[in-house]
Design a protein around this nucleic acid. Structure first.
Length: 336
DNA sequence: TTATATT
């Protein structure tokens, strides 16, 4: 719902500790003043905290004071962030532009200069090669309002900026977590589980944890897509969390909450597809999560994979921990 | 090198 007042009273709280209870969350923010509502955003089934929440104060003054008082507060080796929430209306969604063919000398400032005449900009970002620092010629312009983003795109798409030698190509940016694009080098990507050669360190010598054990159970994960190496987009349909080994009668509708793996060094271009490709062939994957730096529209280089069955999770560790993927050595372990 | 930026 669009509410003008909400812009002044409604706060988003980021970087909440996983263990923070709803009660403690409420008390902490009630200490500033009366609130209309508050909630920690959690997984519907498991109640696992997503690490952020909302607090809507009755008075704008208390909201402002909550920011002053509580932003940056240390809680269990994290620092919470308290800021105004974006208004939850259509005009603020989809206001992020993806701009290609930037002149190579462009940084955030030059991008800002070119686009700020269309409206108020939250942030600009230019992607650079992590090693050389060279611009990739690609960036993001996030406007406060979608209509400003639309005007900017209409006017600037196909135009060559002063000092540039190519016309801008402008699109709306994808949702961070949902974009499906082949990871770099995926044309040659060969899953370690299918390898028989020595370049995949964990493909042999693992006894009955060898990668191809129980092969008849391996390919149930992609009803839409075609086969291994050709992944469809409907990842959400792979399974429902009721994995094998759940027994029947005694569970009373509870579901196996799965085993969470920490996967480090997946690269800054990784997305959810990357993790599905790596893990789905090794067992039942409930969900994957690539941790994004939302300010940069980039992966932070790690993610989490929840697998239903313990033995398959251990198998995935055996296969993938230490495996060199896109030139980086993966680290795969049970989440601590 | 162990989480989550829009309900």
């Amino acid at each position: 719902m669009a509410n003008l007042d909400g812009a002044k009273t409604n706060l988003i709280i980021n970087y909440l500790p996983q263990t923070l209870s709803d009660e403690d969350f409420r008390s902490m923010f009630l200490s500033i003043g009366p609130i209309k509502s508050c909630k920690i955003i959690r997984d519907k089934n498991t109640l696992y905290s997503y690490g952020f929440g909302f607090v809507d104060y009755q008075s704008p003054g208390d909201a402002a004071r909550a920011i002053t008082t509580l932003n940056g507060l240390s809680m269990e080796n994290k620092r919470i962030k308290v800021a105004y929430a974006r208004p939850n209306d259509e005009n603020s969604k989809g206001a992020n532009l993806y701009v290609c063919n930037l002149p190579k000398h462009y940084r955030e400032e030059e991008l800002m200069d070119q686009f700020q005449k269309y409206g108020s900009i939250v942030q600009t970002r230019v992607l650079v090669n992590q090693v050389t620092g060279q611009s990739k010629g690609v960036g993001f312009v996030l406007f406060h309002k979608k209509c400003d983003a639309e005007s900017a795109m209409a006017d600037m798409d196909g135009k060559t900026p002063p000092g540039g030698d190519q016309p801008f190509s402008i699109k709306f940016a994808d949702d961070n977590a949902k974009k499906v694009r082949p990871p770099p080098g995926s044309q040659n990507f060969q899953h370690p589980a299918y390898s028989q050669g020595p370049r995949f360190p964990y493909s042999g010598g693992m006894g009955n944890h060898g990668p191809m054990r129980n092969p008849g159970n391996r390919f149930r994960y992609n009803p839409m897509g075609g086969g291994a190496g050709n992944f469809g987009n409907n990842y959400g349909n792979y399974n429902n969390g009721y994995g094998s080994g759940m027994g029947g009668s005694g569970m009373m509708g509870q579901q196996n909450q799965g085993h969470i793996l920490f996967v480090y060094n997946i690269g800054y271009d990784a997305d959810e597809k990357t993790l599905w490709q790596l893990f789905a062939p090794l067992g039942t994957v409930q969900k994957v999560n690539v941790i994004m730096d939302h300010a940069k529209s980039q992966c932070k280089g790690y993610g989490f994979v929840t697998m239903t069955n313990y033995d398959e999770a251990q198998h995935a560790i055996d296969c993938l921990n230490g495996y060199v993927f896109n030139g980086k050595q993966l680290s795969v372990s049970f989440k601590s």
